[in-house]
Amino acid sequence: MALTPEQIAVKTEELKAFIAEHKDMPGPLMPIMQFAQESFGYLSLENMIIIADSLGIPVTEVYGVATFYAQFSLTPKGDNIISVCQGTACYVKGGAQVLARVEKELGITSNETTEDGKFTIQDTRCLGCCGLAPVMTINEDVYGKLTADMIPAILAKY
């Protein structure tokens, strides 16, 4: 769900408090960015500017770190998070075709969010249930032994 302006205001204050607490520790950038990512679900330009200004570094540096590590996202996550496993077992059982079908159905690629904010596809390696390969999760729901043809019906449930 998108954050309301009130929620953003509260979370922004929390972020500023967290920065104040951590800015003088060694290597403060990553923990602060992780806090913002966790709290907002992504790193907005506004938050990257807040982080950069309070640490006295250019925004480009925060952005550089944000785009270097897969753990950070620059766009809000969708209401439903789809993880199509590309680990070894799923991959050999056709995980790539499943992912391709999900991408085609939604019109986005991995680590993107649909324009209506409904779905995000997340880069995924092993989900730990290789017996069900190829496997995909949507939020907490697990779908196993998939074929590409099963995807439209599954997506329709959300």
Binding site: A52, I57, P58, V59, T60, E61, Y63, G64, T67, F68
Partner: peptide
């Protein structure tokens, strides 16, 4: 010390 450009991705 302008910081208009940087390096992104990898």
């Amino acid at each position: 010390q302008i910081g208009a450009i940087g390096v992104s991705k990898r």
